[in-house]
Amino acid sequence: MIVPLFAVLALLTVAASLVVVLHTNPVYSALGLVATLFLLAVFFVALDAHMVAALQIIVYAGAIVVLFLFVIMLLNLQVEARAMAPAPLVVVAAAGGLLLGGLVLAAVLREPELPTAAVGPGYGGTEALAERLFTAYTLPFELTSVLLLVAIVGAVVLGKKRMP
C-alpha cells in the first residue's frame, strides 16, 4: 500500500481504538470498536486478503458489536456508571499495553528488513483460504465449531433455567 495512505489509515485506526478505551459513554466506545474493525478490514483488503476482510466486517462489525450495542442500549447506563475504570486498573492496563507495544517495536527493530516473497494468483481469495482450512487446519476448524456449539447449548440451558 502507498505509504501516506497507510499512515493516514493507521492514525485513524489508533484514534478509533483510543475512543474505545477512553470514551466514557459506552455507546461511543462500541462505535469506536466498529470503526476500528472496519479500518482493520481495509488493511486486510490492502494485503490482498479480501475474504478475511469481508468476514471481519460480516462477523465482527455487522453482528457481534451490534449485540454489544443492543445490550448497552437495554441496560441504559446512568451517568455515574459511565465513569472511567478505577485508577490502579488503568495503570495496570496502560503498563500492559506499553509492554506489548515495546515487544512489537523491539521485534521490528531487531529485523527491520524482513525478506519479501511474491504471492501467487488467487492469494487471499476464497478458494485459497478454504483449501487451507479444510486440509491443513481441519481439526482446529472442527474443534472450534464444537466449542461454539457448546456455547450455544450453554446459553439455551441458562435461558431455560427458570422454566417449570
Binding site: L31, M51, A53, A54, I57, I58, A61, G62, V66, T126
Partner: peptide, 17 residues
C-alpha cells in the same frame, strides 16, 4: 471482487447501525 457476494452481505449487515 473475488468475494463479491460476501461484500454485499457485509455492506447489508452494516445497515443495521
Amino acid at each position: 471482487l473475488n468475494v463479491g457476494i460476501l461484500y454485499v452481505l457485509a455492506m447489508a449487515s452494516l445497515g443495521v447501525y
